[in-house]
């Protein structure tokens, strides 16, 4: 039976992948995303510059042979900072979403599976978290615990779990009434087995889609927090704090090489992730086959 199940899942995966590939935009997004991830991973091989090394005698230089994207106000290579900044921005995005998905997964499953008082407590908690204005809470937490990469990830993760939790709960409620769950109950499967073995795998696809989109919004939030000086502290580069450093008027007006690269990177990556997320949603939707 296990082998049959495995086969079944494989074909589902294949189907999804085929449907995904049919969506040109999603595929392009995936390619772009992979390129960015690779360039972040292999940053040390792509540039010889240390992204944190100042060279004040060489500051504010426009793009040139030595510095393909120019240098910033501390004389640091913009290309190097954009590549390494991608590491931090993408990591923050992934880890923050990892945290929010983990919390959302656990609480959402519990609420959806057990219902009743458990459901009420968890969902009211979610309502409370939902009702916080995100930026204000994030700023307060950052102000109290001080800006750091880890705090940024934790802040973003903790503040955005209600979304996935609700999504999962809804899936659980829907799946609980399906025939295969009734059947599993009928043959005497334990609640844990039903929950983890039967319901959860089926509820994961919408969560995956939402996670993808959350990564994009986490990258944006990190950029926002760093832009306000509350995210990743200097000297480590992130796309957000690179933009922050380029904020003075004379830089905005006369030195576009300082803000174009990180700005473009954020724009392209967030757009790519959104395309991928859209593609995934469509791909997971079985009705797509009807068309």
């Amino acid at each position: 039976m296990d082998a049959a199940l495995h086969q079944e899942q494989l074909t589902t995966g294949k189907k999804v992948w085929r449907r995904f590939c049919r969506n040109r935009l999603a595929l392009a997004g995936l390619v772009v995303l992979v390129l960015f991830v690779l360039s972040a991973i292999f940053a040390p091989w792509l540039t010889d510059y240390d992204p944190n090394r100042n060279n004040l005698r060489d500051r504010n230089k426009p793009p040139s042979r030595e510095h393909p994207l120019g240098t910033d106000d501390m004389g640091r290579d913009i290309l190097a900072r954009t590549l390494y900044g991608g590491r931090i921005s993408l990591t923050v995005g992934l880890v923050a979403v990892g945290i929010s998905m983990s919390i959302g997964l656990i609480l959402g499953s519990l609420a959806g599976f057990f219902g009743g008082a458990v459901d009420t407590v968890i969902m009211r908690l979610a309502d409370i978290f939902y009702s916080f204005p995100f930026l204000i809470v994030a700023i307060t937490i950052a102000a109290i615990f001080g800006p750091s990469i880890y705090n940024t990830m934790v802040i973003l993760g903790i503040l955005s779990w209600p979304g996935p939790a609700r999504l999962l709960r809804a899936e659980f409620l829907k799946l609980k009434t399906t025939d295969f769950v009734t059947a599993a109950e009928g043959i005497g499967a334990s609640p844990a087995r039903i929950m983890f073995r039967h319901v959860l795998p089926n509820a994961l696809s919408p969560l995956l889609v939402s996670a993808t989109l959350e990564v994009a919004s986490a990258i944006l939030s990190e950029a926002g927090l760093s832009f306000l000086g509350l995210g990743v502290p200097p000297p480590a580069p992130s796309w957000g704090n690179m933009l922050n450093r380029a904020r003075p008027l004379h830089i905005l007006a006369n030195m576009p090489w300082m803000w174009l690269p990180p700005g473009t990177a954020i724009f392209v990556v967030v757009l790519a992730i959104n395309f991928v997320g859209d593609g995934l949603r469509d791909a997971f939707d079985p009705r797509q086959d009807l068309s």
Partner: peptide, 13 residues
């Protein structure tokens, strides 16, 4: 102060 921040980065290095 931007100059202070820049000084801090120079000092650090």
């Amino acid at each position: 102060s931007r100059q202070n921040e820049q000084m801090a980065l120079l000092f650090q290095q």
